[in-house]
Simulated assay, not measured.
Amino acid sequence: MSRSSQASPAGYTDQSQTRIEPLPPAVREQAISWYVKLASGMQSVEDEAAFTRWHHAHTDHARAWSQLQKMGGRLRHGAELLTPSIAHGALQKAAHAGGRRRALKTLVCLGMGGTALYLVQEQLPWRASLSSLLADVSTATGEQRTVTLDDGTQVALNTASAIDVRFDAQQRRIILHAGEVLLTTGADPAGRPLVVVTAEGTLTPIGTKFLVRHEAVPGLHAYTKLAVVEGAVEVRPHGQQGQPVIVRAGQQLQFTRDSIAPSTPLDENSLAWVDGMFVAASMRLDHFLAELGHYRPGVLRWTPEVAGLRITGTWPLHGADATDLILDSIARRLPVKVTRSTKYWVQVSLR
């Protein structure tokens, strides 16, 4: 067994200075089992009663269920909420054929929270790995939060982000499953190195403040973005041997499992979310909308004709209607219209 698999989940302190302990692995597995069963519509009356007993048996059970609901929506009575019936059939088939893990992946592909139409049209790829659903620390779409780990390291999580924290006697390990985090490292009294792990590689900071983002589009690309604000960070892609690449303050770069792109000057606008702002400086509209889509549920599309238009501005991200207000703003500034078929299906096209 590797050192990382032996390491125990580490606790953290949230913004209200409340001490939070991570969920035990057994509770995670139980919650996943209930999540799939109730969403598939295969539960009996006895199952419903058993779920209620499980839910109330321990505060960890309720917390695990709350995290799944935050990521997925209203699934307590999934058989009624995941319509049309073809969605039930797909989930039941997956559950019978491949067990709860395959069924859970199907459930994530549904888009959850009443957007089962996406499964049929295959328009909403699941952006986070299954392990991120019950990560030690996570944020929902549009949510941001900051936590302080046991060693004093501060982690700010952007929208739809998830990390696991594993500390042992030899090292401190943070696993980024999805999204984007800004880390300000703490001074560990035991002198243990801090390592950040993504699907593409490992990052070892040297007394630093830095941003890490994991971006994955199934079937297209997956990469990690690193931006160093203070200090320096060593980058080691999983698929490369040899000496690590050192990225210093004021630099940023992207890397995959097999390659590292050249570093470029730090884009200060990429840090604006930490202050609750969305900033663009002569940004292509397709890039603008792709980024904005991370902050809202559902699908945000655009036609090819508007992709190359440029937009500059600063907008607040806080508030339930923040992204809708941003869309309304670009419709006033540019020759585009915003068509909302539903709350979760929006398209931007030429006027």
Rank of each mutant, 00 (worst) to 15 (best):
A128C: 06
D258K: 09
I326R: 00
K93M: 09
L110Q: 02
L110S: 15
P237N: 08
P218N: 03
L133G: 03
P25L: 08
D286K: 05
H214D: 08
A216D: 05
F288D: 01
V197F: 01
K337T: 15
K105C: 00
S66R: 12
A216C: 11
S8E: 10
E48I: 08
R296L: 04
V45R: 08
F255V: 07
A79S: 11
V196N: 02
G298S: 07
L289Q: 02
V137F: 06
V348I: 13
G298E: 03
P316F: 06
R101Q: 15
W126L: 07
L38F: 12
Q241S: 13
I175P: 05
R76D: 12
H56S: 11
S4F: 11
R28L: 03
G191M: 05
G113W: 03
A290H: 08
G219V: 10
T202N: 12
T106H: 01
T204P: 00
H318K: 15
R100K: 15
R101S: 13
Y223R: 09
S329F: 05
L194N: 06
P84F: 13
S5A: 15
R284K: 10
A135L: 13
L107D: 02
K209E: 15
V196T: 09
W34Y: 11
H177S: 12
R127E: 11
G191C: 00
R166Y: 13
A222K: 04
R28T: 01
S131H: 12
D267I: 05
G313Q: 07
V212P: 02
A232Y: 02
R101F: 09
F51G: 03
I246S: 11
V233N: 07
L271W: 08
P218L: 11
L68Q: 00
Y12V: 00
L211Y: 00
A156W: 10
G319F: 05
A320Q: 12
S40D: 04
D47I: 14
L104K: 04
E234Q: 13
H56A: 12
P297T: 10
L182E: 05
G41P: 01
K37F: 02
R284T: 06
V45N: 11
A281R: 14
V165M: 00
A49L: 15
S16V: 06
K93T: 13
Y223F: 14
I32L: 14
S259N: 13
A281W: 07
